[in-house]
Write a protein that binds this DNA or RNA. Structure first.
Lengths: 218, 218
DNA sequence: ATTAAAATTTAGACAAATCTAAAAATAGGT
DNA sequence: ACCTATTTTTAGATTTGTCTAAATTTTAAT
């Protein structure tokens, strides 16, 4: 497994949202910031190795082996992210870039020991679930804050957009995972929300609300 | 800096023992398990980048920049080794392979945080000194056990051979860094030594003694 | 059913890092 | 100083992952 192959598998997995379904060459190219022709080349190589299903003009999808491999890389990525935040005091907007490198380290013992050191965390710093060793997933029962009804309340459990600018914005506004949140009012005009977060009132735009996941307290 | 470039710099540094002096193409090829022609190619590339001095048929030596770069990689390698042993309970014969990968992770913040987490260690698990951020070295005042006179005593501070088989042998015989050691007798015939280590007497071969460093208690 | 637009693949090229085989330079022994 | 053995370099090929530009296939609209 080369680093590049691993990155393709990861990209295909993410584009497929974990589900089956065929992913287009173009989508992969865009996600990976490369050209469609490069994707075609790699598709052939990965198909050769039994990691993806590929038929000309029909898109690409992961085989079982491919899915398992993708999950093990995602597992490593997310465990390293937790490590960076919990043990080395990285902020949650800093971890992605470094984890992109660390996820390719080849040592099963290493990642198992990191897992144990962190006490087997279930979620990464952005609220995304960490696959188990055997590729099991525990997606949280969550919904976008923007989809919740007025007066609903819950706990902030994840972000949809995990880009550094968005995460920095959340930090600046003291919005963190684990915070309780209650929708006080919804503005029809711009769909901005008046919310109560950890006892303080603030107004957030629809753009923000549609990138924040909340676990409903039903 | 590609990974391969970094590996060449490291190899050149090690072969030069940290000192100046020109290293031969052949020596580098052997150390890196590659061919002399590949070394020549890389020598040109590294010279182009100002990392080594290179004149055809005259051998290769590191420039100041090259030395600094090599030291920063060695620093990362050794800090990761300490991390693996101290925080993840790796044994000292297991760390090298993984550290070979981790040393190439590009993040100054990461290695500084690891350094701090480990409380700024001065030596790695094999007793080799960890360069400081600005490339300073503190080589310990040590000598080979085999070079010490009879009745001398000291503390075991390092190994010359850090191959897995040798390290496993030491483990099995409960020889560890930090142990006090005293030479009770030297056998003229095979130059084996009768030693007192942490209260227990044992006999070790010349081969072993010539791969163990001891700090003299003069 | 046709056709234009979009997506995808092919063909050919390139850079990095390596190799083999052959050529060139150096070093050592007499 | 010469010759030979060793070391080093060159030349040309290979692999991996990428690219551009051109060709092909699919899609979607009329």
């Amino acid at each position: 497994m080369t680093r590049s192959e691993e990155n393709y598998l990861k990209a295909i997995f993410h584009l497929g949202n974990g589900e089956a379904g065929s992913i287009s060459t173009n989508a992969i190219a865009e996600q990976m910031d490369t050209k469609p022709s490069s994707v075609t080349d790699m598709a052939k190589k990965l198909a050769e190795k039994g990691l993806v299903h590929y038929k000309k003009y029909q898109g690409i999808s992961l085989t079982d082996t491919g899915t398992r491999t993708a999950l093990s890389i995602i597992r490593k990525h997310r465990l390293w992210e937790v490590f960076l935040v919990k043990k080395l005091d990285f902020t949650w907007d800093e971890v992605h870039e470094v984890a992109e490198q660390l996820e390719h380290i080849k040592s099963e013992k290493l990642i198992d020991k990191i897992d144990a050191l962190l006490d087997f965390p279930k979620y990464d710093p952005h609220g995304d679930p960490i696959p188990t060793k055997d590729g099991k997933f525990m997606e949280r029962d969550k919904q976008l804050l923007s989809d919740m009804p007025i007066h609903a309340q819950g706990v902030c459990v994840g972000v949809k957009d995990s880009s550094a600018p968005f995460l920095k914005f959340l930090d600046k506004n003291k919005i963190a995972l684990g915070n309780t949140i209650k929708i006080l009012d919804k503005e029809d005009f711009d769909q901005s929300l008046q919310i109560l977060m950890e006892g303080k009132e603030l107004r957030i735009s629809h753009q923000i609300a549609s990138n924040l996941y909340v676990k409903k307290n039903d």
